[in-house]
Design a protein around this nucleic acid. Structure first.
Lengths: 225, 225
DNA sequence: CTGAGGTAACTATGCGCTCAGTCACAGTAG
DNA sequence: CTACTGTGACTGAGCGCATAGTTACCTCAG
């Protein structure tokens, strides 16, 4: 039995994966993907600075030096995680169909935002809490992705405000409130809890609309749990 | 000029204080208060694990060993900060008057929650993000304070739901949404921004009520910015 | 004199990262 | 088929360094 079969056997009995297949993209090798998975779990549990390279490599049954075969540094690992995480979240947002009026568009955007952050709450936690540990250049790249994310949501809210569907005295304040609903759940959400990501997305989309709806426009209440 | 006058002179030209006078309680000595202030700034900026004892002591013009004259360890410093922060936040919440119906009570509680977290956003950031670095015993003490905090808010929401004022299919989900509004602002709020803590508290209290109000109960819209 | 507060040099530890060497394996020559 | 060789993944000891925490000594107001 070669080393690679032995490692696959170890991986098979590892705890559940941090992300689904395909998340890291097709070019990444199996060992690099396993290291990214392990790093996501460690960074989410302990934080970037409290995580050692030995934690990460031990999580996939490798020795400390193996990390540097696939990544130049611990920081590059964090960069790969946060950049890919932000790219996937942005993809989920722009994939939300823009049909219907601004109200339906915002509903679908918030549902997509919340569903993604709930389903990928471990990666999302790293993306939200560990940006300060990035190199300035890497951080700038990730913050640019964040700006595009926010701009997508802002456009929909501004459109609804212009059409008189929403009552938002300050678009930025409304945006921050909506984003807070989606972002803060990475702090507490667990996949084995009562609410599925999709269900939570629907609930929170309704809450967001209630916050910004103009008076008298509220639709009938959504289904219960 | 003695060493103490020299230190006071250094403090006088320091950047603005992290917390107002009296925050740490009357028993703490001036040197200990200065170290707590410096630690709050460092932990909020860099995170607990990336902060060294040299950072903290250099921030008040002392040598590294001086920290251990006043505190047993870096962790005890974090414990003092998070415990006191949670105590002060809880005090602000229970000080909100409970007069009027449940709707007004929730409004005042959310306003108090948001106002406190905005005004003390630096301490609050440490309280929210660095709990994992606490000793298990210290963490248990702080989590108990958090539970009492949540229970205060939950009681008011449950009362309103029982009276038919609120439409909340799941009290925990509504609570989490409201708490997320208040907690996530420590990530972005700055005191030199456009909204004062009190004004943001009023705005967010209104948003919270819109999320949970039963249909047809919404009051006229609040004042603009 | 006393002792609380503070200093500076120190220790032990554990970190990120390196590098010479091992191993499995694919390709190729004879 | 065997023998040889190049290649890339990986090992594991360990380097240089920065860290948290310790300690012996100093200062000076009361």
């Amino acid at each position: 039995m070669g080393a690679w079969e032995a490692r696959e056997a170890r991986e098979a009995r590892d705890e559940h994966r941090a992300v689904p297949d395909g998340f890291w993209g097709p070019r990444t090798t199996p060992a690099a993907r396993a290291l990214l998975d392990s790093a996501v779990r460690c960074f989410a549990d302990l934080g970037y600075h409290a995580t050692t390279t030995r934690h990460i490599t031990a999580g996939v049954g490798l020795s400390p030096g193996a990390l540097y075969v696939h990544f130049a540094s611990k920081e590059e690992l964090l960069y790969e995680i946060t950049r890919t995480g932000h790219e996937r979240a942005l993809e989920a947002l722009v994939a939300a169909p823009g049909e219907g009026d601004a109200r339906e568009h915002v509903r679908r955007l918030v549902a997509a935002l919340v569903t993604w952050h709930a389903r990928h709450h471990t990666v999302a936690r790293v993306c939200q809490y560990e940006l300060a540990a990035l190199d300035p250049q890497h951080r700038a790249t990730v913050l640019d992705l964040r700006a595009r994310f926010t701009a997508t949501l802002r456009a929909a809210v501004e459109r609804g405000a212009a059409e008189g569907l929403f009552d938002v005295p300050d678009v930025n304040r409304a945006l921050r409130a909506i984003m807070s609903l989606g972002i803060d759940l990475v702090r507490w959400y667990r996949l084995d809890g009562a609410d599925s990501p999709e269900f939570l997305g629907e609930c929170y989309a309704e809450l967001a609309l209630r916050m910004i709806d103009a008076p008298g426009l509220s639709a009938p209440r959504p289904p219960g749990p």
